[in-house]
Design a protein around this nucleic acid. Structure first.
Lengths: 223, 223
DNA sequence: CGAATAGTGTCTGTAAGACAGTATCTG
DNA sequence: CAGATACTGTCTTACAGACACTATTCG
């Protein structure tokens, strides 16, 4: 029961430029001073109600972002992941619309294509990989990707976010049928004018799904 | 970063008497001396390669069982869950066939119906609840329940285990079709004589699935 | 009107559920 | 042979995917 280094790390994901991006910060002290890494920090028992609180606090303090979606991913541990000694990190992942990052993220935050994140310090590359698997898997049978959209969005936008997350294209008719059955969305007045074509209907999350995922039995299958 | 109590807890599940059972131990010291609780213990940085190692060691030392399936569940934390102070427990769940418990479990191990586990010390009731949800959910689209069967088993036995875990009955034809498609099992010589009727074919896990789950797209649906 | 994107109607194929049949054991 | 359980053949139903059609905007 000697010294265990207890920390949290957050994989903050967003979709920009048609790609899943992960938020990284340049470390300002050793170990790995100067390297880009996940936002993370020590657990503060005096301050935090639990590790979820530690993650929310760390994310807010280091990136400026208060994420509407923050979920525990997994706990990583062992003698080798931190040169300072045996350590334990409870990892979380957050999903935020890109507009929120543009609006409130501190300038130090760097976005990098998440699937190309390699060579990060500690075991952060593995944590990012695990987060991507979880988000991809969970998106295949739930409404998780709506957290990557803003307040309002169109169905083609939402489908595109699903396709980016899942890494494969989805049948349009099936996608819309499924969205309809889930009764997840409600139309919002005001259309989104595209560039120079038929504008799409705007939708928003129904209030009852603000804090809950909608689940589907059979998933969004490629097509 | 003051003192954080770091431990692991294991939810050991098995199917007996047609019910999911959880293994509990009587605590022999405070806090909660005398109460039935999950097998758990402190992380030993000098000894453990990671928390998975801590969980395997704790399970072996306290129950005598070496589980073929042990997976991280979630991490529970906060100032209130342990009267000694701010604590963090990495929870794991293990699935073992009942014959293994009969063969190697220490006499102190008590099995209790898992869905009725309430009033356990710390937040162990919540941990058990979370484990049940995870196992149920994962069983609906994977071969997880085979770990609850012994080396060899019949299809009616396996289906019954699925039904116990999922809490609902499964269409027999669909179940067998699915098992066939997954190419998960191979027949074994020697039939299992039931009580007084047609004996069922014995099967075992194909070697390539010893360490891997088989996944299905659409799940085992009730019927 | 043409181009481009949004959205829909409908056919088809696939896979799951229901049901009823056959197979094989004990006493 | 009766009873009980194991296993299978096949029809029906439900849902996902394909495709082609209509709708609406801009220039």
């Amino acid at each position: 029961m000697s010294a265990i280094i207890c920390s949290v790390d957050v994989v903050l994901l967003t979709v920009d430029e048609g790609v899943l991006q992960v938020a990284l910060l340049e470390r300002d002290h050793d170990p790995f001073c100067g390297a880009l890494s996940l936002p993370g920090g020590f657990i503060h028992p005096d301050e935090d109600q639990d590790t979820q609180g530690s993650a929310a606090r760390t994310l807010r303090d280091k990136t400026g972002i208060v994420s509407p979606y923050l979920e525990q991913l997994s706990t990583f541990s062992g003698p080798g992941r931190d040169p300072r000694g045996w350590s334990l990190a409870v990892a979380y992942y957050a999903l935020v619309p890109h507009v929120l990052i543009a609006a409130s993220a501190r300038r130090e935050v760097s976005l990098r294509p998440a699937r190309e994140a390699r060579g990060l310090p500690f075991d952060h590359s593995e944590i990012v990989r695990t987060a991507l698997q979880r988000v991809q898997s969970k998106s295949s049978y739930s409404s998780l990707p709506v957290y990557l959209c803003g307040e309002t969005f169109t169905l083609p936008e939402l489908q595109s976010v699903y396709e980016v997350v899942l890494g494969e294209s989805i049948n349009k008719v099936s996608f819309r049928r499924k969205m309809d059955e889930l009764e997840l969305l409600e139309p919002v007045e005001g259309k989104l004018a595209g560039k120079a074509h038929r504008p799409a209907q705007l939708y928003r999350l129904r209030p009852k799904f603000r804090q809950t995922l909608a689940l589907t039995d059979r998933g969004f299958n490629p097509g």
